[in-house]
């Protein structure tokens, strides 16, 4: 299902801005009717980032990267606006591995003015779960607030993301933050 030719980016972006309005209207109509934003949209968005497995491709820090899955773009370096992010998450990006997360996208919900037939080989994959428009907005807010424009991932950011006792963040500790657990984690008696 992966596509040879990437969806032309310039055209995509143009389309995106044209379609964004159209799309969010449809999404709103399809999903929950307009709701007051939750008091802490950023936390709700972080939860979506985990549960919809954005981190499976873009990593917890959003930097994405190559690897076995091809390249998920860096959300830290993205130029997209909130509306554009909402549109990419809802519709996916045709001709790439970025999945769509709106139920009915390319069916009842038109994306880039295309349905499945129009999209053909450019049809993006379907996300692991569908997100309501409120969740898509929340994850976009989270990306804007915590990921877009950020530099290299830091220990503080990582701890804030995981808030667990996992050692997943240890690697981001600066020399000063490291006691001597570099050796401790290696085990004794070698």
């Amino acid at each position: 299902m992966m596509i040879f030719d990437r969806f032309p980016v310039a055209a995509g972006t143009l389309l995106a801005s044209v379609v964004a309005l159209n799309f969010s209207m449809l999404a709103a109509a399809y999903g929950q009717s307009a709701q007051a934003p939750t008091s802490d949209p950023t936390n709700a968005g972080k939860a979506v980032f985990g549960k919809a497995n954005c981190m499976g491709c873009h990593k917890w820090h959003g930097n994405g990267g190559g690897g076995y899955g091809g390249d998920a773009l860096s959300l830290r370096k993205t130029d997209l606006t909130r509306d554009q992010i909402i549109e990419v998450v809802g519709c996916g990006r045709p001709g790439t591995g970025m999945p769509f997360f709106t139920r009915g996208a390319y069916d009842e919900v038109k994306c880039h003015d295309m349905n499945r037939q129009d999209a053909g080989a450019q049809m993006p994959p379907e996300g692991g779960m569908f997100l309501r428009s409120k969740d898509i907005e929340a994850v976009a807010d989270y990306v804007i607030a915590h990921i877009k424009g950020a530099g290299e991932p830091t220990y503080a950011e990582c701890i804030a993301f995981f808030s667990s006792s996992s050692r997943v963040c240890d690697v981001y500790k600066t020399q000063a933050q490291k006691p001597d657990d570099a050796t401790a984690s290696r085990g004794k008696g070698q």
């Binding site: 992966m2 596509i3 990267g65 190559g66 690897g67 390249d71 591995g97």
Partner: peptide, 27 residues
């Protein structure tokens, strides 16, 4: 399968990050 190459440079080598110099896709 299909392979896309990414030209690697030493600064791209980071702990716990992919170091693959490209990636596969499945047409």
């Amino acid at each position: 399968n299909r392979i896309k190459v990414e030209v690697m440079t030493p600064d791209k080598l980071k702990p716990r990050e992919f170091w693959t110099g490209g990636g596969p896709s499945q047409p």
